[in-house]
Computed example of a mutant assay.
Amino acid sequence: MNKSKLLKTIVAIAALAVLVTGGYVYKDAIHSRIARTAAVVSGQEIKPLLDSEGRYIRQIVAQDNSTSRTIMWQSDSSEADAVIEYRLVGADSTQTISATDKAFTDDGSTTYIHEGTVTGLTPNTKYEYRVGYGNDRRSDWYSLETAGASVYDVLIYPDSQSGDYSAWEEIVKDSAHRNPRTALYISMGDLVDNGEQAYQWRTWLNSIRPLSA
């Protein structure tokens, strides 16, 4: 069997294994496992993150949004070698900073929060960043544009609390699509209906992904 056929076979088996052993698994989680398996089999130097390794990747407004930006994400397991890589859009050279690895337990569920602040950036400049671990696991690249002196748009959302966040997610996606140049978003009021239930936070964080990363 040649390498191409072997790769397809292993990917198919991996997908089936996830479906059989995992019960109900989110589509993104299945795709991430298939992508990791394909990368390993094909001998890629950089492996994509599993869904469980790169949850809720998000940018957070820093003290000076024109020269710095805080990046945060979560993983299901401790990752002591968490890093953030960034570069100018189109550049070959990258810079890397270390990120935290702090356990956070809520509603009996423990995840690990990774956070780092990129500093020394040039105002009104387009960068891109990705997160990962060690030298061989990385997320996709995401855009990061520093603030300038010009007027900019902000999306402001009222209370999003609900028992079903599907309608809220549609609002987020639609508003992001109609306002592609928005510099940041602000969520006001109650974010979730019951702040003591971890699944509501997970659902809310997933729904805001079109904007947060």
Rank of each mutant, 00 (worst) to 15 (best):
Y56V: 03
R137Q: 03
P123S: 03
A103M: 09
I60D: 05
V131H: 01
A14G: 12
V41I: 15
V89Q: 11
I156V: 15
Y185I: 14
V131T: 11
E170K: 14
T94R: 12
T96Y: 04
L211A: 10
V118G: 01
R58K: 11
V151Q: 09
N194Q: 05
E128S: 12
D164G: 05
I57C: 11
V41A: 11
R69M: 11
K27P: 00
V20H: 06
I13Y: 03
A213V: 06
E115I: 10
K5T: 12
E79S: 10
L16M: 09
S143A: 14
D136S: 15
S98G: 09
V20D: 03
R202A: 13
S150L: 13
T37C: 09
Y127W: 04
G22Q: 05
T94F: 11
R58S: 14
T9P: 00
G134F: 08
I97D: 06
G195K: 01
E45P: 01
D28L: 10
A14R: 11
K173Y: 07
E128D: 13
F104S: 08
Y127L: 03
S187I: 14
S77P: 00
I113R: 08
N124Y: 13
A198N: 00
N206L: 09
D107S: 03
K126P: 04
Y127V: 01
S42R: 14
I57W: 07
Y26V: 14
S32R: 05
I30D: 06
G195T: 04
